[in-house]
Design a protein around this nucleic acid. Structure first.
Lengths: 229, 229, 229, 229
DNA sequence: GATGAATGAGTATTCATTCAT
DNA sequence: CATGAATGAATACTCATTCAT
C-alpha cells in the first residue's frame, strides 16, 4: 500500500501535484480517524466521511467492505506500529545489561506514545484519543475482531514489571498495570474528568513533553507504592 | 409526588404489587441510564429505551422534551447527590481538628463513589461508567448545559489539596488532580485499557472494596510523589 | 358571552384585573385566528395554539371538540357578522328611493370589510386573510360544514347587480361577480402576486382607506365594462 | 440527461414501453405538483408523494435534498418558462411598431398563462393554482429563495404599463398592476370566493378560452379607469 | 370546569448498504 | 476502478386525541 507504484493516470498525477492529495483509501482513513475521535463510531456517518474526504459515498464500502471494517482499518493502521514500537523498546531493555527499572518500563510505553503524539500528520495524537474512546465505548470490534492478537504486549510488559517489582503479588501487579496503563492512556488522550465540573480546562498541555513531565513521577510512584496491608 | 396517596385503582395497585413498577418517568430514567452506558448516547435509540421501559415511544418527549434533555436528566439525577456527598465529606474534614491528610482527601471522593457503586439498584455503579463515557464522548451537553455549576467541587478539592501538598506548584497540583481524578473515575468505571490487547479481563473486581484496596495506595503515592526536577 | 356575570372565583377575578385576560375559549379563538392566518390550518398545531393562549393542551378539545370544530368556530365568529352587515347594507339600499348604482353595491360589500379591517383588536383584518387562505386551501370544512347557509348573500348581491347592470347576460354577470369579489377579497387580504417576483412590496397600504381609494374605481370599471363581442 | 442514449437494458426499455414511465425525479415532480395544489405544502406528506409516484420514500431526499428543496424545484420548473414566455411577448410588443395598447399588455401575460392552462399534461393548469396557493400561504421559500430574480418581470411590465397609461401616477400604477395581476392569477387558478357562500360553483369554466373572454374586458376596463379624484 | 399523563399514528430526515453500469 | 441511483430500515420528534381524575 505504501510502495511506490508507477501511475499512468495523468489526471490523477496532476491532482497529486496540485494538492498532493493522497489516494482515495488513505483519504478515507485519515478523515475517518478524525471523525471517529470527534463524534464516535455511531456518531460518524459514512456521509460525513465521504463528503469530507471528497470521495463517492459508495467508496467506503467499495474499499473497505463495511463501516465496521473501515473502523478496524483505521484502528489497526496505528495500533500495529504502536505495539511494535513498544515491543522494540522492551527488546532493547532486555538486551541491555543490568536490571530494568520501573521508570524505564514506563518509558518503554510512554516513548512510543510520545512519538505518536508528535506525529506531524496529527493523526497519531488523534489515535490515542480514538483508542480511549473505543475502550470506553466497549466496541464489539475491540472485543471480537481487533487485537486480541496483541496479548504478547500484555505478557511482555507483565513479565518485565514482575521482575522490576518483585515484592508484589500477581493480583496486585495486575491492578497496578491496569491503573498505570489507564492513567497513561488518559493523559495522552487528554481526557479530563474535571472538565465535567468546570468550564476551564484544568491542565493546559498541548505540548506532549509536558504530559510526560507530570505523568511520569505520578505513575512511577503509584507503581512502586507499598501494597496496602 | 412522593406522598402516599390512597389508590382505589385496583389494576394499578396490582401492578405495583406484582412488579413494584416505578412511574413512567423513573422507568425511563432507569432504562436510559443502563442503555446510555452500554451503547452510548448516539448508540441508544429512543425505541430501545421505550421498549425496555415498556412505555410509549412518545413518552420520552412528553416527559423530558428531547433525547438531549433526557440525557441531562439521567446525568443530573446522580451527579447532584454525588457532588453533594463529596462536599459533605470535605466539610467534615474541615470541621475536624488537625491537618487533613492526602489519603483523607482521596477518600473524601472515593467514599461517595463507593456508596454509589454499592447502590442496591445498580444504577449508581452504572453512573460512574456513564460519567466516563460522557467524558470521552465529549458531549456538547457536558460542555454547555450540564454541570459547570459544580465548579465549587473542583475549587474545594483544589484548596484542600493545596494545603495537604504544600510543596507543589499550582501547575503541578492541577496536573496531579487531573491524573488522580482520572484514574479514580477509570477504576470505578472499570475501564480496562489492557482489554484491547487481551481477551481476558486483567483485573477481576466486582467487589467495590477491592477497587479501593488497590486504588488507594496507587493514587496517594502518585499524589505525594516528589515533582520531577 | 359578553354579558357581565357575577364571579365568585376570586383568583380568576384577580387575573382579569391584572391582565384583563379574556376567558379561555376566547383566548383560544383569538390566538387560533392569528396562527391559522400565519401558518394555515395544517401548519398550525394545537400545541402552538395552546402555548400562545397559555391554556392547557386539552383545552381545545374540551371547549371545541376538535381542531376542525375550532376552525369552524374561528371562522364563523367573524363571518356571521360580516354577512349580516352586508345584508343590512343591501336592505338600506333597497329601502332607499331611486335605482341603486354599481358603486353603491360595491360599497355595500367594501364598507363592512373596511369596518372589519379597522377593527381595533386587529382580529378583523386577519379574518379577511383567513378567508382568502381558506378559499385557496379549499377546506373541506368550507365546502361541507361552514357557510352554505349564506347563499342568501350571493342571491341578494346577484339580484341587485342584475338590476344595476341590466345589459349583461346571466353568465356574464356571474363572471363579473366572481372577478369582482375575488379582487376585493384579495385587496383586503393584501395578497400581492407580484411579491413572487420582487422582494419589495409593490403597494404599501397599511391604511384600509387607501385600499378603497384604489380598489373602487378598478372594480366598478371592470363591472360596468361592455361585454366582449 | 436529455440526450438520447442507446439502451440495451431490455427490462427498462419494456417499462418505458408499457407505461412510458418518466424517470424517478420527474415522477416525483409531477406528483408533488398535483398534491401541493390539492393539499398545500404542509398538508402534503412525503409519504403521499412517494406512494403515488411509486418511488422509495428516501428518493425525495436523495434527489432533492429536502421537502423544501423539492417544493422549490416543483415551483421553478414552471415559473422559469412562464416568465420567459411573458418577457418574449413583451419583446415582441417592443419590436412592433406603434404604441402598445393596454389590452396587448394584458394579453402578453394572459397568453402564456393560457398556454400553461392548455398544457396537455395538465401540470401547467395546476401550476397557476400552486402559485396562488404559495402566495396565500406566504411561503418562506417564496420570500427568500425562489424568484426574487424575476424582478425583471415586474420592471418590464411596469415600464410598459407606464407608457400605455401615461395619465396615472406611479403609486396609482402600482396599485393597478397589483390588482390586475391578482385578478388574473385568481381567474386562472379558479379561486372562487363565492364558493364560501354557496355550494354551486358560480362560474363554470373548464375551458380556458372562456376565462379569457370574461376576464379580458374586466381587467382592461379596470386598468384604464380614471383615477379617483 | 379543567388538566396532567399518555398514546398510536404520523412527520421529515438519515442510515449503511446494494447494484447496475 | 469507481459511481450515481436507489432502497428498507431506522432515526428523533410531533401530531391530534383520549381519559382518569
Amino acid at each position: 500500500m505504501d510502495t511506490v507504484k508507477p501511475t499512468t493516470n495523468l489526471k490523477k498525477a496532476q491532482e497529486t501535484m496540485e494538492a498532493s492529495k493522497p489516494d482515495t483509501a488513505t483519504r478515507i482513513l485519515d478523515v475517518s480517524e478524525r471523525l471517529f475521535v470527534e463524534h464516535g463510531f455511531e456518531g460518524t456517518s459514512l456521509r460525513m466521511i465521504t463528503q469530507q474526504a471528497e470521495v463517492n459515498l459508495a467508496a467506503v464500502n467499495y474499499h473497505f467492505g463495511s463501516k465496521d471494517a473501515l473502523f478496524e482499518s483505521v484502528f489497526m493502521r496505528r495500533l500495529a506500529p504502536l505495539v511494535a514500537a513498544c515491543l522494540a523498546e522492551l527488546d532493547r531493555l532486555d538486551a541491555a545489561e543490568g536490571k530494568t527499572t520501573v521508570e524505564e518500563l514506563v518509558m518503554a510505553f510512554i516513548r512510543p506514545c510520545l512519538a505518536l503524539s508528535k506525529d506531524p500528520s496529527r493523526g497519531g495524537a488523534l489515535f490515542v484519543r480514538l483508542l480511549s474512546r473505543a475502550l470506553v465505548e466497549n466496541h464489539r470490534l475491540l472485543r471480537e475482531t481487533i487485537s486480541q492478537q496483541y496479548s504478547v504486549f500484555v505478557h511482555r510488559f507483565g513479565k518485565a514489571f514482575k521482575e522490576a517489582l518483585p515484592g508484589l503479588s500477581d493480583e496486585e501487579l495486575a491492578w497496578r498495570m491496569h491503573l498505570a496503563f489507564g492513567i497513561m492512556f488518559n493523559a495522552f488522550a487528554g481526557n479530563d474528568v474535571l472538565k465535567i465540573f468546570v468550564r476551564s480546562q484544568v491542565v493546559t498541555a498541548r505540548d506532549p513533553d509536558m504530559i510526560v513531565k507530570h505523568l511520569l513521577p505520578f505513575v512511577v510512584s503509584g507503581l512502586v507504592a507499598p501494597a496496602q496491608g
